[in-house]
Simulated assay, not measured.
Amino acid sequence: MALVKTDLPGVKLHGRGKVRDIYDLGDHFLIIATDRLSAFDVVLPTPIPNKGKVLTQMSAFWFDFFKEFVPNHVVSTKVDQYPKDLQRFRDQLEGRSMLVKKARVFPIECVARGFLTGSGLKDYNRTGEVCGIRLPAGLRDSDRLPQPIFSPATKAETGHDENISEKQAAEIVGVENIRRLKELTLSIYNRAVEFASKRGIIISDTKFEFGTIDGVIAIVDEMLTPDSSRFWPADRYSPGKPQPSFDKQFVRDYLERIGWNKQPPAPELPDNIVQATSAKYVEALRILTGRELE
Rank of each mutant, 00 (worst) to 15 (best):
M1R: 12
L3R: 02
K5R: 15
G10D: 10
K12Y: 11
L13C: 11
G17D: 08
V19R: 01
R20G: 15
D24G: 09
I31W: 07
I32S: 08
A33M: 08
T34V: 07
D35L: 04
R36M: 13
S38Y: 04
A39E: 07
F40Y: 14
V42N: 06
L44G: 11
L44R: 12
L44K: 13
T46N: 06
K53Y: 11
L55W: 03
L55H: 03
L55C: 07
T56I: 05
S59D: 10
S59E: 10
A60M: 13
F61Y: 15
F63R: 04
F66S: 03
K67P: 06
V70Q: 12
S76Y: 04
S76I: 07
Q81T: 07
Q81E: 15
Q87N: 09
R88K: 15
F89H: 11
F89N: 11
R90G: 08
D91S: 15
Q92V: 09
E94V: 13
L99Q: 11
L99F: 08
V100R: 06
A103I: 05
I108F: 06
E109V: 05
E109D: 08
F115D: 01
T117R: 02
G120N: 06
K122A: 13
Y124S: 03
N125W: 08
T127Q: 13
T127E: 15
G128D: 05
E129Y: 05
E129L: 03
P136V: 14
A137S: 14
G138A: 10
G138L: 12
S142C: 14
P148E: 00
P148K: 00
K155P: 13
A156H: 14
E157A: 09
G159H: 03
H160N: 13
D161A: 10
I164D: 11
S165W: 03
I172D: 01
I178L: 14
R179Y: 11
K182D: 10
T185M: 08
Y189M: 07
R191V: 11
A192D: 07
E194I: 11
F195M: 07
K198N: 07
G200K: 00
I201H: 08
I202H: 04
I202C: 01
D205W: 03
T206L: 02
F208M: 00
F208H: 00
F210M: 05
I213R: 01
G215R: 01
G215D: 04
V216T: 15
A218V: 04
V220Q: 05
E222P: 12
M223N: 03
T225S: 14
T225N: 05
S228K: 07
S229C: 11
S229I: 06
R230L: 04
R230S: 06
F231V: 04
P233H: 02
R236P: 00
Y237D: 00
Q243W: 05
D247A: 07
Q249N: 14
R257S: 15
G259K: 06
N261Y: 10
K262I: 11
K262T: 14
P264L: 14
A266I: 02
A266V: 00
P267N: 00
P267W: 01
P270K: 04
N272G: 02
K280V: 01
Y281Q: 04
V282Q: 12
L288V: 13
T289M: 06
G290W: 13
R291D: 00
R291A: 13
L293I: 10
E294C: 06
E294V: 10
